[in-house]
Design a protein around this nucleic acid. Sequence first.
DNA 1: ACAAATACCGACTGTAATACTTGGTTATAA
DNA 2: TTATAACCAAGTATTACAGTCGGTATTTGT
Lengths: 160, 160
Amino acid sequence: MRLSTKGRYAVTAMLDLTLQGGEGPVTLAEISETQGISLSYLEQLFACLRGKQLVRGVRGPGGGYYLGRPAEEISIADIICAVDEWVEFTRCGGKRDCKDGKRCLTHNLWDELSSEIFNFLSSINLAELVERGGLKEEGCIREKENSELLVSESGKTRAA
Amino acid sequence: MRLSTKGRYAVTAMLDLTLQGGEGPVTLAEISETQGISLSYLEQLFACLRGKQLVRGVRGPGGGYYLGRPAEEISIADIICAVDEWVEFTRCGGKRDCKDGKRCLTHNLWDELSSEIFNFLSSINLAELVERGGLKEEGCIREKENSELLVSESGKTRAA
DNA sequence: ACAAATACCGACTGTAATACTTGGTTATAA
DNA sequence: TTATAACCAAGTATTACAGTCGGTATTTGT
């Protein structure tokens, strides 16, 4: 198991997607701006997430991303595993019969701990996490800007 | 919270120390050999652990390391925090009153998750982990080589 | 007094991952 | 047919990881 800032970025982005979702797709540009994560980096992360069916992309204007399945069915472990690939680090190859019993001992212990962490993260899903925050109805959800493509004066895109 | 191979090394080493401890100090050279971690790297990790009072070093021949306090009082979180320093990554500085309510939302959610992971790891101590492995009495504990300094033919040190 | 063992310490290094950039190509809605 | 957005591949700067090297400080046994 591995839990780095990369996984954190992914979880944060998925959390944002969960909050903003429901009324049409969410663009990476929005997430990028809100969460302060570079757009291209988000694209890379979402390529991983899409590979694991955790998100579904819609191309073209008005496009963006949806969650790949209901928020209740996406665990934190799912997200982290998708981007922060699992590092199997035992030197004895994970098999029980390595000569040196002492070496395997701590390996087994670590593996047990690792499993516990994994199970824990598997037990938390996006919906729960959002629910627990209890901030869903306080205007924290971004206003959908009028989806008409007349964002000529918003300044975020090149002048049209 | 961060959970990388560095933290894993530290936990593994502390686990080893817990198992071998009780009858005198354990040298880093032993841990290095048993766990396959470079000696100098262990020294760096133990410098961190010592700074947080998790271990106590004894110099000179026959020296080594003891746990800084009973194994029951050392949690996995203690160990990981000592070596894998806590990355505070919120862009709003952790304060609740940042202008943009939306940004803080996911940050708070993440912080909550982070706290949960921390609490979880805090709830597991070294003694429990060793107990759970159930391997304490299976010859997994290293034999203490005769502490006499006559290791002339062991070949591990430069010929004396 | 001396030599060896061990912790302790700081600086350096190769490798890999992270986080980001650049410059595209598709697909789709207006 | 044009702008929007996902999609894609390659490159880059920074950092963390893991380890090396060469030393100093203490303590023990002879």
